[in-house]
Design a binder for these strands. Structure first.
Length: 775
DNA sequence: GGAGGCCTCGGAAGG
DNA sequence: CGAGGCCTCC
């Protein structure tokens, strides 16, 4: 037997060996799912299957990276030719080749959710619709789910049910907004995340040659986390696999927790209906957790009606019973959890990184953070704004995007007047109107600014021409310069770097550092060809002789994970249950086990939603290897109001045999802290100075000056702006005294930069800001 | 053009 | 309560 097969149990081995025909692997939590996927691919490679013929799809870049790494350890260099990546990255690569068939440039831009929502906002405004009714997020979600269910805007508008739903909801123009949104995107040469799937589907549906090409390429198709697939993903996979039917899906219906973003659990529940010859393998032995934890999880999930039959078991020790902590307030809950972590770490010689605190909503992190900080316990919160979503990063990237695809409307709007070049909102509005009338992209209008009637005056037109010439000069260097050389050139010649360098406020400094970090990243990419995405197939391999900026952009367009995982640091992990999926920790604290919080009150309407909450609970329980602690509070603040809480029904769904109900009284905080509603002071009352500053919960805040009041009394007489000079000491009504650092512009637009001690630099327009000259 | 006041609204989240 | 969007006033 091959040595890689020896490390597998019987059912794992069966699942690995059966590489022909449709296969479904139901993988219980902690049952070695990734190991099976990895070995299955290694096995295929060892048996002469060409890596070019294997397509392996995941949901996250992280999962793809992890798998690729493990496969290359076992199978060596060959594995780099696998098509392995996220649905979006793989189909984006395909579209780079095939999208011209649909009329898109192969250099199409990928809009992230922010770009998409900004565009929708503009469209809603253009249409004269109320943005309170047509909220960008809502419109985006509606369009997104239409695409995920493979409705084009036309099909959407022709579907009586959808149209009627929208009418009933008082939003009859959603179909129209969908149409305009798609057309604007098309003109901009842009696709959003959902278009990457939708357009792939269209290509496979309408172009038989393309369908056959990829059916023959992908003789073996594997899908990870199959329970998370939406309709579009499922149909694409099915089409691709239709020729050879070597399709292997891996998943766990019990861990389906993404219905709210379009995942269709039916895909896994009824997979057998689509493939009568389906071979199903069940991985039921759990290697992760103690018996008590596994059994507790099983007792919980058995409350769900709709699920595939399986029984997860483990050979591991019984372990500790599941413990429950009760706090009077959310603050006390935090303290008790922090104390417990402190004690457990000492007693069991744990590392902080062995411990996680999981919660249902991000807002719950606050009381935990405060408690951990008080105890001096290092922690790290997962989730948050990704590096590439930061404003300063997106600004510079927008210049890059324009360089590659000048039709990119969202990028253009971001930077046409940043840094300032006196092309303001009025001008932009005129450009948008003209583009609409002439059916051109915004960029096309800019290019022809002197031959199209826009009503823009000559000086502004001249500035626009300068901008166009600048962007064109960047584009001209795209293929002759390395990504780093061009990126630095752009950062400097646009004045963006200088602009941020000039800002010496703490935020400004951090913005500048972030830009430097981006440029460092591009340098690394240029030198080493490091890409965040898995390597594409040889056919799609980019030109490796020169790493250019367009390739860099393509590489990062689909990278959304915020931070680089620094597994080395020893910190307690705080995250939502959703983001804990796929992870494991020796000790897990699941906090906020209260009705209306978990399960969320929004899920109490229907059985289907409650079952998803229960699966979420199942996911949370099964993250724990050694010890699971549940906690709840009897009261907590919600949006400024104190509410009282009841323990979650989910606690009672755990078979009491696995519960240590004594623990509710054994863990006490070091010093008894009054719950906040009893206290004579404010909510976040841990720090004495806040205690003094903040009165009780129902206290109405008295507006207090942000800065110490200066010079009361006589009416404040401002000096003549023309007399203000660099180096002068001046007094400002609000900021106090400061020194004039620079003066720019001509009267009456004189602008001064003044340094106020303890406050920092302020840019003041002298015709507005009243400055009194001191000396 | 930008900072600060005022109002609104609130789930989870990958690409 | 707090973050984010919009409007106003400087």
């Amino acid at each position: 037997m091959d040595k890689y097969l020896v490390q597998l149990n019987d059912s794992q081995r069966d699942a690995v060996l059966c590489i022909k025909g449709p296969v479904m692997i139901i993988a219980g939590a902690g049952s070695g799912k990734t190991r099976v996927l990895v070995h299955r691919i290694v096995h295929m490679l060892h048996h002469g299957i060409d890596p070019f013929n294997i397509l392996s799809l995941t949901f996250t870049n992280k999962a793809a990276r992890e798998m690729k790494k493990r496969i290359s350890l076992e199978a060596g260099d060959e594995s780099r030719n696998l098509w392995m990546g996220t649905f979006h990255s793989v189909f984006a690569k395909l579209l780079r080749v095939e999208a011209p068939r649909l009329g898109y440039p192969s250099s199409f831009t990928i809009y992230d959710t922010d770009d998409a929502k900004n565009l929708i906002k503009d469209i809603v405004k253009d249409q004269g619709l109320d943005d309170k009714i047509y909220k960008p997020g809502l419109v985006y979600n509606r369009i997104s789910s239409a695409k995920n269910n493979l409705y084009s805007w036309k099909e959407y508008q022709d579907n009586p049910e959808l149209v009627n739903d929208d009418k009933t909801a008082g939003k009859p123009h959603l179909g129209l907004l969908y149409e305009i949104y798609q057309k604007r995107n098309f003109k901009s040469g842009a696709m959003d995340f959902d278009d990457l799937l939708f357009n792939t589907y269209i290509l496979l549906r309408d172009f038989p040659d393309i369908l056959h090409k990829y059916q023959n390429k992908f003789k073996y198709v594997l899908v990870d986390e199959f329970q998370d697939t939406n309709y579009a993903q499922y149909i694409i996979v099915k089409k691709l696999a239709a020729q050879h039917e070597n399709i292997c899906v891996v998943g766990d219906d019990a861990q389906s927790i993404y219905a709210f973003r379009g995942a269709n659990i039916q895909n896994i529940l009824s997979f057998k209906d689509d493939y009568p010859d389906l071979k199903t393998f069940k991985l039921e032995q759990n290697y992760r957790s103690t018996k008590n934890i596994v059994n507790a999880a099983n007792s919980v999930i058995s409350n769900n009606k709709h699920q595939l039959k399986k029984s997860v078991w483990t050979d591991n020790a019984d372990g500790e019973l599941i413990r429950i902590i009760k706090g009077l307030s959310d603050n006390e809950e935090g303290n008790m959890v922090a104390n417990s972590i402190f004690e457990e770490k000492l007693q069991n010689q744990l590392h902080y990184k062995d411990i996680a605190i999981l919660y249902r909503t991000n807002a719950q992190s606050r009381s935990m953070e405060e408690a951990l900080r008080r105890k001096g316990i290092p922690y790290r919160i997962y989730g948050g704004v990704s590096f590439y979503a930061r404003k300063e990063i997106k600004d510079l990237l927008s210049y890059f995007r324009l360089t590659v695809n000048p039709n990119d409307e969202e990028a253009l709007k971001r930077v046409i007047n940043y840094p300032k070049r006196e092309i303001g909102k009025t001008t932009l509005d005129k450009i948008i109107v003209a583009a609409d009338q002439e059916n051109l992209s915004l960029w096309n209008v800019l290019e022809k600014i002197n031959s199209i009637e826009t009503g823009i005056n000559a000086p502004t037109r001249a500035r626009i021409s300068d901008f166009v010439i600048m962007i064109k000069s960047f584009t001209a260097q795209l293929k002759t310069k390395t990504a780093f050389d061009l990126a630095s050139h752009i950062a400097m010649s646009t004045g963006l770097l200088k602009e941020l360098y000039a800002d010496k406020s703490p935020e400004g400094i951090s913005h500048y550092e972030n830009l430097q970090e981006l440029l460092n990243g591009i340098k690394e990419f240029t030198d080493k060809g490091t890409t965040a995405l898995p390597a594409p197939s040889a056919e799609l391999e980019a030109d490796v002789t020169l790493r250019t900026l367009d390739v860099f952009l393509q590489d990062i367009a689909l990278v959304t994970d915020g931070e680089t995982d620094e597994k080395n640091e020893d910190t307690v992990s705080l995250m939502t249950i959703h983001s804990s999926k796929g992870l494991e920790f020796k000790y897990v604290y699941l906090v906020g086990m209260e009705e209306n919080l978990f399960p969320s009150q929004m899920a109490l309407q229907s059985r289907v939603e409650l079952e998803e909450e229960r699966r979420l609970f199942y996911v949370a329980i099964t993250r724990a290897e050694i010890r699971l602690t549940l906690s709840y509070a009897l009261s907590r603040y919600k949006w400024g109001n104190l509410i009282s809480c009841e323990p979650s029904r989910f606690i009672t769904e755990i078979n009491p045999d696995y519960l240590d109900d004594q623990t509710a009284v054994t863990i006490r905080p070091n010093s008894f802290e009054k719950p906040r509603n009893w206290s004579d002071f404010g909510k976040h009352n841990s720090k004495p100075e806040v205690v003094v500053a903040t009165p009780g919960p129902n206290f109405k805040k008295i507006p207090k000056p942000r800065f110490a009041a200066v010079s009361e009394g006589a009416p404040f007489e401002a000096a003549d702006p023309n007399q203000t000079e660099v180096g002068m000491d001046v007094e400002h009504q609000k900021f106090g005294t400061g020194k004039v650092v620079t003066i720019e512009g001509n009267f009456p637009e004189l602008k001064a930069t003044v340094t106020f001690p303890g406050i920092g630099n302020k840019h003041l327009l002298l015709k507005y800001a009243k400055l009194r000259i001191i000396k």
